[in-house]
């Protein structure tokens, strides 16, 4: 039961984090007593910034120059992106359409924190009332608290997205970028695999007098897909799946001065994320099969600026992307040719 509890607000990708090995206090079985639809609505709102931030973050860190590698030139880069959660995503109001969940005090005007909201004690959280289909009260529980991530260690509230990738120069000003982690199984606790591919192509070469132009100019198209799962209760066949894909198309311009390269991009990005809880979940009255299926998708204009420092083969990169979740990326790698 305890393990089931933690799933509710942590989702699968939080479930393996030590801080979430105990529940948020909300009883997932009770949520299910209130109905799958209500449980999904609450989860969707509570987890929204985590998934959205993750989606925006996946499209970061693809490049640090508009100049593709020369033939068989390559780079290996490790990066970490922080997709900043907007203030508007720190709280949510109780979704409309709930049938068996309501505020215990209907005149309570406080909003509910999302997972990226402030860390509040029970006295500061609205109380939710769960009823059965006959309107009989089952239980009342404090709304789940946010994790207060910006309170202690990082200066702002952000979703981290680490990434590792390889860039390889081909021909005619074309570079292919690969993000790849083969299928991993972690001793029955879960597993994941990652694949991403990007193409950068020099378009400056098609411009007249391109040798005279004091900058590099390329187009970039990138796609990333992550599939992961966590075994909640292997004996009961309960798993949580988290599948995310994102793609972006960008125009990229850069200018190198000594060992500094300033770069900027403008384009479009898109992500699509599915989160599911699969298996049988039994409440006092019913067994639900595959009760939670959430989908988050969004798209929009993406603009970024950044700088790369190259010391011999070592590259150090910083990038800031302007989008719904502004994203700061830092990377380090080696780059040859």
């Amino acid at each position: 039961m305890k393990k089931t509890l933690l799933i509710l607000f942590a989702a699968c990708f939080l479930a393996i984090s030590p801080n979430m090995t105990k529940a948020q206090g909300l009883d997932f079985d009770t949520f299910l007593e209130a109905g799958i639809d209500d449980a999904s609505l609450l989860l969707e709102s509570y987890l929204q910034p985590a998934f959205e931030g993750f989606g925006f973050g996946m499209n970061s860190g693809w490049y640090n120059t508009a100049k593709p590698h020369k033939f068989l030139g390559f780079d290996v880069t490790v990066s970490a992106s922080l997709a900043r959660v907007p203030d508007t995503r720190q709280f949510f109001t109780l979704p409309t359409g709930l049938t068996n969940v309501s505020l215990t005090n209907p005149s309570d005007t406080r909003r509910l924190p999302t997972v990226f909201g402030p860390n509040l004690g029970a006295d500061d959280l609205p109380e939710l009332r769960f009823t059965d289909d006959n309107g009989e009260e089952l239980i009342r529980i404090s709304a789940p608290t946010g994790l207060g991530i910006d309170e202690d260690i990082v200066p702002f509230n952000a979703v981290p997205v680490p990434m590792v990738q390889l860039g390889l120069g081909l021909f005619k000003g074309t570079e292919v970028k690969l993000r790849y982690i083969p299928e991993q199984d972690f001793d029955g606790d879960g597993g994941m695999k990652l694949f991403g591919i990007g193409i950068m192509h020099d378009i400056k070469q098609y411009l007249p007098a391109e040798k005279l132009l004091p900058f590099d100019l390329s187009v970039f198209l990138g796609y990333t897909n992550l599939e992961s799962y966590v075994n909640i209760d292997e004996d009961a066949g309960q798993t949580a799946e988290f599948n995310a894909s994102a793609w972006t198309v960008q125009g990229v311009i850069s200018k190198k001065i000594l060992f500094f390269t300033a770069f900027a991009g403008l384009g479009y990005s898109n992500y699509d994320i599915d989160f599911s809880m699969l298996g049988n979940y039994t409440t006092e009255s019913t067994t639900f099969t595959d009760p939670i299926k959430l989908n988050y998708k969004d798209n929009g204009i993406r603009t970024n600026i950044g700088v790369r420092i190259k010391l011999l083969f070592l590259t150090i990169t910083g990038e800031y992307a302007l989008q719904e979740y502004n994203t700061l990326t830092a990377g380090v790698g080696i780059s040859i040719r």
Binding site: I16, N19, S142
Partner: peptide, 22 residues
């Protein structure tokens, strides 16, 4: 796995921890 599967790494809860009234 925590990192590579792009998990949301939690740096730690705030002062209130995870507290709930049931």
């Amino acid at each position: 796995y925590l990192i590579a599967c792009l998990t949301l790494v939690l740096w730690g809860c705030g002062d209130a921890g995870v507290q709930s009234d049931v």
